[in-house]
Design a protein around this nucleic acid. Structure first.
Lengths: 211, 211
DNA sequence: TCATTTTTAAGTAGTTATACTTATAATTAG
DNA sequence: CTAATTATAAGTATAACTACTTAAAAATGA
């Protein structure tokens, strides 16, 4: 009998935290040592209780899970972080893995797969959900359309604000830069993503989980 | 010992279906008789297995849970539908309840509250999550802003197109009306909803499930 | 350190959106 | 049938957005 695997669950919805705890507790090999609501809380719990695996929802309320993942992976390299998200976007997954995460699951994965993923990362393997693997392959095959360019942090910040309906002027006042700078970012963003206007950008941002 | 309460879970994410099943099975008074991914499937399962309670996620992939709820409540009045959503929007909740639902929970509710809600609706009570109740009260207190006006069918059609990023000109060509007419609709929509621009409208429309 | 990327800013121009108002035909509800 | 609502269209004016270019300070990475 091996020891129990210590897991931390990070999600901003109580019902989901409790539900995942429940299904992990059903196996007697995994022990949920705690849950966290925010990125900050997640890091604190990690540094104190040293879980072996962290299940991290990407779409947290105030922060986006990326920073917390990076921080945890850098300072506690023994901790394996597995990402979980409703939005299975390839670029997002890549970015997440680049932060040091060891796995990625969509919410379409089964209970068995969740446990399999935990076992995999415990054996120092990278685990990707089947449907995400498939998307990766599809994107590689799709040589026609060039890979979607990645947005910079500032651009993401501005995308979020545009998508919420703020005008360039309002954004400028809000983050203390010139209106012209906001307009430049705006233009660059639309060009990078090949999107014609703010309405469609807003729709895009929602799909990606930026809002 | 009372009989077990038969529950159906409707959500388009497997992991969430399994997780909720797990926490409900932990009580030995509730039995999850099945799960469904889509609105159609939900209705079919209901008409065959006659669950006493249906836990319905509003944000389903292709349909928005409203039609399924209405259909179930009309043809199987003994079935109590409880709505579950990430978006705890007051107008949405009202609409959902008007379709015949008996309860509404946000994903911030606890496991205990989930069970309490099921017990409540079994006793023919209406159950609203604490945070949603609060929002209801806040909106009533907010006498300043009048209740959100409803959009006409044409307006909804145009909202959908605007939100997808089509310009007024494109919409005009697409549905064979004058650009000026589209602009009039556009203006009326923003005024009715008290929304300042297309980007925010797009966000709004996504939340409402119009796209 | 050096090269690259990012963030900042502004110029010029054309397009689209938003805010109001007015108005008529078509449809719908009582 | 009549009244109200809805869908249609246009006028006028202002604000905001989008396209494209140039450019320099700042941050980042190798």
């Amino acid at each position: 009998m091996t020891e129990e695997i210590k897991v931390l669950i990070v999600d901003d919805h109580q019902l989901i935290r409790e539900a995942w705890t429940a299904i992990l507790q059903m196996t007697n090999r995994i022990k949920v040592i705690g849950t966290a609501e925010t990125a900050e809380e997640a890091y604190e719990v990690c540094s104190i209780y040293r879980p072996e695996v962290v299940l991290m929802d990407i779409n947290l309320k105030n922060s986006n899970g990326f920073d917390a993942t990076e921080k945890i992976c850098n300072s506690l390299p023994k901790t394996r972080v597995i990402g979980l998200s409703l939005h299975d976007d390839v670029a997002l997954v890549k970015k997440f893995l680049s932060k040091g995460a060891k796995g990625y699951l969509s919410k379409n994965t089964s209970r068995e797969e969740l446990v399999a993923a935990i076992d995999a990362v415990m054996n120092d393997k990278i685990y990707l959900a089947a449907d995400i693997k498939e998307k990766f392959i599809n994107q590689i095959i799709d040589t026609e359309k060039p890979a979607e360019k990645e947005l910079t942090n500032k651009e993401i910040e501005i995308v979020t604000l545009i998508s919420q309906g703020f005008t360039s002027k309002e954004i400028a006042e809000k983050i203390f830069i010139s209106v012209r700078t906001v307009e430049t970012h705006r233009h660059n963003i639309l060009k990078k993503l090949n999107i014609p206007n703010a309405a469609q950008l807003s729709s895009w941002a929602k799909d990606k989980g930026y809002i």
